[in-house]
C-alpha cells in the first residue's frame, strides 16, 4: 500500500474512533509494520498543519481534535461543559496523579485533612478510579488517574506530567 493511502486510512480510522487509537490497533487493522504506520502518522500530522484540526498523541493513542485557536467559533456552535474543580479537589488530583497508585490515607497524610469528599468527586467525574487494594492491614483501596484524565489534560501518558519540583521552582522564581 502506498504511503498516501495509508495516511488517508489512518485519518479515517482516527476520525471514526470514539477514543484515542493506539499504534498497535492501527498496525493490526492495516497489517503494516509499526515503522510504516508511525511514518504515515507523522506525515499526516504535517499535512494537517494549516487545517482546523490536528492529530495529537493523548492517553496512549492518537486523536483528531480541533485546534485550540478555533475554540471561540466552536463555542458559538455548541455550548461546552467545563470541568471546574475546587482547590481541595485539585490538590487531591495532583497527589493521586504524582503518587499513584495511592491510598486515601496516603493522600490524607499530605493534605492533613479527610479526603473522602474530593476523592468521591474526582471519581464521579471519571478522573480517578480504584486501582486495586494495597497489601497492608485493612487492605485499603488504591487510587489512580484514568484515561479520561489523560485525554482531558492532553497527556500522552502519565510520564508526560511535568516534574513536580520544576513546577514549584518556576513558581517561586517568578
Amino acid at each position: 500500500m502506498d504511503n498516501q493511502k495509508i495516511k488517508a486510512i489512518i485519518e479515517a480510522l482516527v476520525f471514526a474512533s470514539p477514543e484515542p487509537l493506539t499504534i498497535k490497533k492501527i498496525t493490526d487493522i492495516l497489517s503494516e509494520r509499526e515503522s510504516v504506520v508511525k511514518e504515515a502518522i507523522f506525515g499526516l500530522q504535517n499535512d494537517l498543519i494549516l487545517r482546523g484540526i490536528e492529530l495529537v498523541y493523548v492517553a496512549g493513542g492518537w486523536r483528531l481534535q480541533t485546534r485550540p485557536e478555533f475554540s471561540e467559533w466552536i463555542k458559538r456552535l455548541k455550548p461546552t461543559k467545563k470541568i471546574k474543580l475546587t482547590k481541595p479537589s485539585l490538590i487531591t488530583l495532583s497527589i493521586i496523579a504524582y503518587k499513584q497508585p495511592v491510598t486515601k490515607q496516603e493522600v490524607e497524610v499530605v493534605r492533613g485533612v479527610n479526603s473522602d469528599g474530593p476523592i468521591e468527586h474526582l471519581m464521579n467525574l471519571g478522573l480517578v478510579e480504584i486501582a486495586g487494594q494495597k497489601k497492608a492491614p485493612g487492605n485499603p483501596y488504591l487510587y489512580r488517574t484514568t484515561k479520561k484524565f489523560l485525554s482531558l489534560l492532553g497527556l500522552g501518558d502519565i510520564g508526560a506530567l511535568p516534574r513536580i519540583v520544576t513546577l514549584y521552582s518556576s513558581e517561586v522564581t517568578e
Partner: peptide, 18 residues
C-alpha cells in the same frame, strides 16, 4: 502543582474531539 492542573483543565475547554 494544582495550579498547573487547573490551567490544563481550563485549557481543555478549548479543544473538541469525538
Amino acid at each position: 502543582a494544582s495550579l498547573w492542573f487547573s490551567d490544563k483543565l481550563e485549557f481543555s475547554d478549548n479543544i473538541f474531539f469525538n
